[in-house]
Design a protein around this nucleic acid. Structure first.
Length: 583
RNA sequence: GCCCUGAUAGUUUAGUGGUAAAACAAACCCUUGGUAAGGGUUAGACUGUGAGUUCGAUUCUCACUCAGGGCUCCA
């Protein structure tokens, strides 16, 4: 079915849901019920009743009953007064009616069976026949009109398809996605864990998870050094004054951990690295000869995210960011941004991620009307937003623009990635900052011997390890590429007799930097292969009498491919070249 | 933070107003095997924490903690 028609079906299903609700809960006040990308939802104020998923079967049954009488959606135009009278007890619909009226839009009602709803149209034909294959999925709270200040309504999500088969397919896909969830794989593959005692949003990395972090860290640090970044180290704690100077304090007070009083000082766990790098920059005068200065750091940071915002490794309260600040003369900023984009492109290729498929670029813009949220300097906003736009256009990469997504100090280019649940988050970012240099009085001496104010490019090349690893786990369904796999090779001796030979092969590989282990359990080969495959270890080395006699090994991949017998040296060479190619 | 749901062994789940059952994982024993599960034995849970109701609570009630789905937020 065309997506246009699917939209109509979804929206019609929202009507049907509302009709069932009004039958079962006459006191409920309907708010809005749009179609969304995978189905529909309806926000309803149920008063004192609290709806839960346990009520779904009853509601679904009622929906099936009602739709039998629905032959179509009959439109009628209603006057402002009549509409208000019809919805006199429903503040949500009244608010919408007021708005339509103010904007000079016609007020229309659509009736199907006995149920009539304020609506602008777009419905399926012959609901009786076409509106059969639906399912209610979840209950959630949602603020009226999306504002935290408004009342929270109860939102029910549901989905609908033209055929039973398509509905089942969709539900199956949702199930499959759950299997790739990094939280499940993180436990099954022994990568990370959480502890009630340690606290929420504070991940504990196992040795395997730590290996992934270390490999990524070495990769990015080496790459950045080759691109003329200076890797520095600054403390993860600092005086609150530092953040007052930077201007972060008033903007982000809510997401910072509260200050610790020590003697006469107030210290804070850092929620970002920028002011530390600026302070380092200012420890001595800087000449244009050494510009741009590119300070990079693998930086631990701490943010007090609201409890409901935490999600596995994707949103945590402490994380390790591949941070950097490029302090550059304004006229070189564009070139530097291009350099960062090139680095990010390189990183994504190494990680095996494709633009447009696995991630997309977002140009995150400010809002000239939001003076509280964004630093007021319209000319600078225009200028910097244009630079970022030009850069993206030059790179010929697809991107989209998003209003009201900038940092308070300037616009950004964000690399957005989706998790298994379809939720998109920023993985990597490049930010243009024209505010901090002023606040920190950053200066360098230019060719003319004059003090000049630079601009700052904030960037995260590989993002936060936590979030990036979460995306990678889900992207690969746990089967990480060889170079990132915590255990690259598992040696499976066919019986205890070959333990010594297995041990020798292991030390030989460890010496060459291959991460391997011996599976010395007293189990059949079949059982060991199964276990190793489930642990998603890329290669299995199987050794028995034949191998020992000929001084070779047999190799099998986690995909089940038999690579036959080769020498250990050959195998190591093969692994090495594969690792070098990030595959 | 707000709305909804949930928490039983390492994991996945069962169950009951009278202190809990299973599978997989683990340990040990037998087996020494050839490309996705060999067999047996044992151990492992004060049923998330604290309080209340009750003769008695894992079960009912409340609070807290943590987790999940949303909303808001996301430097």
């Amino acid at each position: 079915m065309e997506s246009h028609n699917l939209d109509k079906l979804r929206h019609s299903c929202a009507h049907l849901f509302a009709a069932a609700i009004k039958t079962l809960y006459p006191e409920a006040k309907l708010a809005i019920g749009p179609s969304i990308s995978d189905g529909f939802y309806y926000d309803v104020d149920y008063g004192d009743i609290s709806l839960s998923e346990a009520d779904f079967p009853r509601i679904e049954q009622k929906m099936h009953e009602i739709v039998k009488k629905w032959t179509g959606f009959d439109k009628r135009e209603v006057s402002y007064e009549d509409a208000k009278a019809f919805y006199q007890n429903n503040p949500y619909k009244l608010e919408l009616i007021e708005e339509f009226n103010k904007n000079g839009e016609k007020i229309t009602f659509f009736k199907s069976g006995d149920f009539e709803d304020l609506c602008q149209g777009n419905h399926a034909e012959n609901p009786k026949e076409n509106l059969k294959h639906f399912k209610l999925l979840s209950v959630a709270g949602a603020y009226w009109r999306g504002s935290e200040k408004n009342k929270m309504l109860t939102r029910v999500y549901g989905t609908v398809f033209p055929s039973k088969l398509e509905l089942e397919d969709h539900l199956k896909r949702l199930e499959e996605a759950k299997k790739r969830d990094h939280r499940k794989l993180g436990r099954d593959l022994d990568l990370f864990a959480f502890s009630d005692l340690v606290g929420k949003g504070l991940p504990l990395w196992t040795s395997k998870g730590t290996t992934i972090k270390r490999v990524l860290e070495r990769f990015i640090v080496d790459e950045e050094l080759s691109r003329e970044y200076e890797h520095v180290s600054t403390p993860p704690i600092a005086k609150v004054d530092l953040y007052r100077t930077s201007g972060h304090y008033p903007y982000y007070k809510e997401t910072m951990y509260p200050p610790m009083k020590v003697d006469d000082e107030e210290l804070i766990l850092r929620p970002m690295t920028c002011p530390h790098h600026f302070a380092l920059f200012k420890t001595r005068p800087r000449s244009y000869h050494e510009m741009p200065v590119r300070f990079a750091e693998i930086s631990p940071q701490f943010r007090y995210e609201k409890s409901g915002e935490l999600t596995g490794l994707i949103r945590v309260r402490t994380f390790l960011l591949t941070d950097a600040h490029i302090i550059t003369p304004k006229e070189q900023a564009k070139k530097e941004i291009l350099g960062v984009l090139d680095l990010i492109d390189y990183v994504n290729k190494a990680l095996g991620l494709k633009a447009g498929v696995d991630y997309r670029y977002r140009l995150s813009l400010g809002d000239r009307k939001e003076d509280k949220k964004y630093y007021k300097d319209d000319a600078m906003w225009d200028y910097s937003e244009n630079i970022l736009r030009e850069v993206l256009k030059n790179q010929k990469v697809p991107y989209f623009e998003a209003e009201n997504e900038a940092a308070f100090y300037g616009p950004k280019i964000d690399v957005q990635m989706k998790n298994v649940n379809g939720k998109e988050d920023t993985a990597f970012t490049i930010q243009y900052d024209f505010v901090m240099p002023k606040r920190f009085e950053l200066r360098f001496i230019n060719k003319e011997g004059q003090e000049e104010e630079p601009v700052v490019i904030h960037r995260a090349s590989l993002g936060a390890f936590e979030r990036t690893i979460a995306f990678l786990i889900e992207h690969y369904g746990g089967s990480l590429p060889l170079w990132l796999s915590p255990v690259q090779v598992s040696i499976l001796p066919i019986s205890d007799k070959f333990q010594d030979y297995a041990g020798n092969i292991k030390s030989e590989m460890l010496k060459k930097g291959i991460r391997c282990e011996v599976n010395s359990q007293s189990k059949t080969l079949g059982a060991k292969i199964r276990e190793t495959t489930l642990q998603k270890i890329p290669y299995m080395v199987i050794i028995g009498e034949k191998e020992q006699k000929d001084n070779v090994i047999s190799v099998r991949t986690r995909e089940g491919k038999d690579l036959g017998q080769i020498t250990v040296a050959e195998f190591i060479n093969k692994l090495k070249s594969q690792i070098e190619n990030f595959s």
